[in-house]
Design a protein around this nucleic acid. Sequence first.
DNA 1: TAACTTTCTTTGGACAGTTGACAAAGTAAG
DNA 2: CTTACTTTGTCAACTGTCCAAAGAAAGTTA
Lengths: 405, 405
Amino acid sequence: MPRSQATDLYAVRENNLSLVLNMVRRAGAISRADLVRQTQLSATTVSALVNVLLESGFVVETGIGESSGGRPPIMLAFVYEARHVLGVEMGATHLTAVLMDLHGQIIGRQYQQFATLANPTGSINQITQLLQMIIAAAAINPSHLLGIGLAVPSPLDGENLDQLSTVIMPQWAGYDLKATLQPLFKLPVYLENDANAGVIAEQWWGRGRDYANLAYIKLGTGVGSGLIVKNEVYRGDGGTAGEIGHTTITSDGPLCRCGNRGCLESFVGAPALIAEVNQHRQINGEAAVHSINDIVAAANQHDPICRQVIDKAGAYLGIAIANLINLFNPGLIVLGGELAAAGNLLLTPVHQAVTQRAMSKAASEATITTSQLGANAIAIGAGTLVIHHAFQPANLGLTLGMKGR
Amino acid sequence: MPRSQATDLYAVRENNLSLVLNMVRRAGAISRADLVRQTQLSATTVSALVNVLLESGFVVETGIGESSGGRPPIMLAFVYEARHVLGVEMGATHLTAVLMDLHGQIIGRQYQQFATLANPTGSINQITQLLQMIIAAAAINPSHLLGIGLAVPSPLDGENLDQLSTVIMPQWAGYDLKATLQPLFKLPVYLENDANAGVIAEQWWGRGRDYANLAYIKLGTGVGSGLIVKNEVYRGDGGTAGEIGHTTITSDGPLCRCGNRGCLESFVGAPALIAEVNQHRQINGEAAVHSINDIVAAANQHDPICRQVIDKAGAYLGIAIANLINLFNPGLIVLGGELAAAGNLLLTPVHQAVTQRAMSKAASEATITTSQLGANAIAIGAGTLVIHHAFQPANLGLTLGMKGR
DNA sequence: TAACTTTCTTTGGACAGTTGACAAAGTAAG
DNA sequence: CTTACTTTGTCAACTGTCCAAAGAAAGTTA
């Protein structure tokens, strides 16, 4: 059932300009002739569009390339330092803010422990402070900041999916994070769920570059996932898609905080794993662990209890992933969050469960891996959100500093 | 990560023409002035595009509408009989072929019991025969046939997802259904998985008209689902998305034919339900049931065993649907297949399980219902596939019979 | 009857990408 | 070195898009 939008000539220009710009950005260095071949546009049009980009400063000519039997091409390069973006991960108990260039390189970073859930005003102030410190510390032109991306530990709600969920974060009812920060910095502010920020980071800078459909599973206190479908974040009708943490693994399992029984989160959420390890440790008279990091570290030191707990978690996780594969058939699944640091200790039982439980074709074609982006992954994803929006056709005029219509 | 396509001026025209045509089609009757308001195009452009459509015969002026305080509008109507399409449901044990107009109205129908899985050549011949009979019987202009849609009981495979899966239908290896029928009828042929055809039918002609994200669950011998994401069928990376039948409901349940344990299909697939009813009936010395239809009929006659079996199936189905809602957060879920005829006997336990198990916001926002399209739903969906393609911007020139560029 | 509103068409123009000719700058071969 | 060829990139003329403005058509309202 088609439901498209009207197109005019400005839209054509925007679309083709975006196409060329993103091709240069992805390639890093490329000639006009190659752009002609890859875009299917005429040489004239490519030349004209490239001239616009050269004037904007996002693209430069870097010299002469290698001849392929005729006149050698003039190489064009994307200027990844032409603009910068800010990304913030608002966790339940911490804030991470990063300043990035257009290549996802971190130029500045601030970290702060902070109990965000119960303190909206304080959180907003803290975020503001962290961002101001980063900007002050970095030697960049403030007018070259494209915007602020915010990853939050809540599904998005509201008419435009740009509000925090008052169900998950009741104390934030009445606070509008986006509308508050926007005037303070005079920059566009984009909100996104943390797992969605994770999947964006993976598709832009991680292993997801070549996948149109992928999932990111964030293993933390809660267990959530971000889905990219046909190269776009998929939020579902109400903004809560990807709630893999509360899918049923076994219909009569333990009671979950959501009221259901046998949820994935009640098996592999951080509290469950920590409690399980400590139960054994108490019996053995050993010191308790306090975080997933402790468990992973101990497992790496061959602690048998921790290894066993991780192994079991992987088996349960594998069931949920098998369901995800059957339903969603993604090309790639990336595991993130603290537990992902366990690497193969986690991946091995996951693979085993998936092979056993998912439809063989979909399972054998899906790659499952742990994230390589480290602790800043979510903040990086938040910043990437800004880049994504800035380079959308409709926003390109603003980003490049072109005069309005 | 943007990955769009180059746009030229023909594409602009195609897009806007498609926009206007589909708006007229959906509205049934509408004035140029209303098209201007809804499309955001200029009055000039709308007039020009409407003239093209009038010439093509897909749209006619039907008279004068009601004035809203000024000159009364000239009403435009879509001509749903301008073209026709053929749709075929190839089931495991039967073939249904329909001839439809552009309103989804069935003009002709043929049904034939046929064991398709083991007999590719025979199936193709049978399909050919049924279609030829329908065409011969109907008083339509053969040159006004837009194409043939085929729904098959298999995920799609191959480079372009236009082949049957050799895993599910091994005896069809080496047969190319699409390439065989295309030259016979000299018409475009489109292949689709049966559950996907079901979800297309629901979005076009059923309760899904106003939903961008919806799921259709086909309850038959197997259990599969079709997903529409952002108004397009979603097939996943390998063409197997929507395999809800083999999601794990309970990690240590009965063995399924797929080798896994506790699959939804092993609880609510037709063989399981029939066996369960008959087990009770044998004890009671009653006659055995042979189909889901038998069970539903008995349940409607207040047979306690059949009611109990349906009730239990609904509870299991509800668990899978809760998982689907948590992951995909669709606005609508339609239950189809023979078992859907049980109506509220099935829906009540499904709703109960979903309320208990899915995240409350997503669950309360999702509508779950049974299909109203009847036994021809899948064949109708197959035919609709042709309409969908014919009205895509890129194919509009051909459909309207316009001269090439 | 005159003024107003709404619908639809006509006219002229701005601007998109394209085609084809051509300039620029190399390679390949005698 | 010279000539022929290839590849890269630009320029001018052109086709075809949508749009804004003006106006014609056909009603309502007072």
